[in-house]
Amino acid sequence: MQGASVSFHVIRNPDLPPVDELEKISWGIVFRSNYIVMLQVFPGADVPEWVNWQDKFQKRVHVFNITTLKIDNLTLEDTGLYRARDSYTRGRQYDQDFHLTVYEPLPLPQIRTTNLSITPGWCNVTVQCDAPGTREDLTMSWESRGLPRELEQREATGPAPNPWTLALSLPLSQPNASLTCVLRNQVDQTTATLDLGDICGHTDPQGQSDADHLPGILVTVVVLLLILGAGLFLWRRGVKKSLEPGRGAGSQEEHRDPMMASTLQS
């Protein structure tokens, strides 16, 4: 992976006679079918002898026990075909090739949901797992937890499209189920998990979701508002009548008994 290290180790050809001794190893890169020597290592020497690419590799390349080459802090440009050429006494030479591919660290996958619908006992949803950035040598798979076996069998692995889509009909009786999108390449793995209970909502014992109760809740609210409005209207009308002229305390004079009025005048 980018930023990591890699080691190449040369193995002596088992067909070589014991009398043939290793004289040197040349490390290089095969570029467009041409072998270009990078450095040479000799038995007993403390440091390698550089031939090419010293500025690019000297601070990152280390040679151990003459037969092992290590490259630190790998970059994407280090990808390529490396070759070790072993030179023995009596003029024998053998090549060993090392194919190196440097990968970027995988980004975290992103899960999105679309086409959500709730039917009696079921949650229908489409999930999409997307991998931003590079897709070279990338595979994607779904892993599930708490789903019926027939749904688990629908899991698949393959090259990642953009994005990878999975349509599901999930039983509402599995509130703790989850789906995990897994991205992999040769050296790294990242995951993202979706809790299906957060998407499909919680259910009551009869299997009804919160969305099933919404119409009844709205009707109840409307009825309460109408009752409250009617009561407020009647109360304001009664207050208005009590304040009209000729009513209240003044109106009591007009309704007294005429005989009582004559007695009071006399």
Rank of each mutant, 00 (worst) to 15 (best):
Arg237Pro: 01
Pro43Ser: 01
His62Asp: 12
Ile29Pro: 00
Cys129Phe: 00
Arg85Glu: 15
Gly248Arg: 02
Val125Ile: 15
Asp86Gly: 14
Val239Trp: 01
Trp235Pro: 00
Thr101Arg: 15
Gln93Leu: 11
Gln189His: 06
Arg112Trp: 06
Ser141Phe: 09
Ala4Lys: 14
Ile71Asp: 02
Phe31Tyr: 12
Gln186Glu: 11
Glu77His: 15
Thr157Phe: 06
Pro159Gly: 03
Leu106Tyr: 02
Ala131Lys: 01
Thr113Met: 09
Gly133Met: 02
Arg149Leu: 12
Arg90Leu: 07
Lys24Val: 03
Asp204Trp: 00
Arg12Pro: 04
Val30Gln: 11
Ser26Arg: 11
His213Thr: 08
Thr203Pro: 02
Tyr103Ser: 11
Thr119Phe: 15
Gly207Val: 08
Ser242Gly: 09
Leu218Arg: 12
Leu170Thr: 01
Leu172Lys: 03
Ser242Val: 03
Ala249Phe: 06
Asp212Leu: 04
Arg83Ile: 00
Val30Tyr: 04
Glu104Ser: 10
Cys200Thr: 08
Thr220Gly: 11
Gln2Cys: 12
Ile11Tyr: 01
Val41Leu: 06
Ile29Gln: 15
His202Tyr: 01
Leu214Ser: 07
Glu152Val: 13
Ala177Glu: 06
Pro109Asn: 02
Val222Thr: 05
His9Gly: 09
Pro109Ala: 02
Ile71Arg: 04
Val30Ala: 08
Ser173Asp: 12
Glu254Phe: 10
Lys59Ala: 10
Trp53Ile: 04
Cys181Pro: 01
Val63Leu: 14
Tyr82Glu: 09
Ser209Asp: 04
Asp188Pro: 05
Trp235Phe: 14
Leu214Pro: 01
Val221Thr: 09
Asp46Gln: 14
His9Gln: 12
Met140Arg: 01
Glu136Leu: 14
Leu228Tyr: 07
Val125Cys: 05
Asn185His: 09
Thr75Tyr: 02
Thr263Gln: 11
Ser117Cys: 07
Trp164Ala: 14
Asp15Leu: 09
Leu166Asn: 06
Ala45His: 15
Phe31Ser: 13
Thr263Tyr: 10
Ser251Ile: 00
His202Phe: 02
Val182Arg: 10
Ala230Phe: 03
Ile217Val: 10
Leu243Tyr: 05
His202Arg: 05
Ser5Asp: 11
Arg32Glu: 10
Asn124Tyr: 09
Gly207Cys: 04
Pro205Trp: 02
Thr119Met: 13
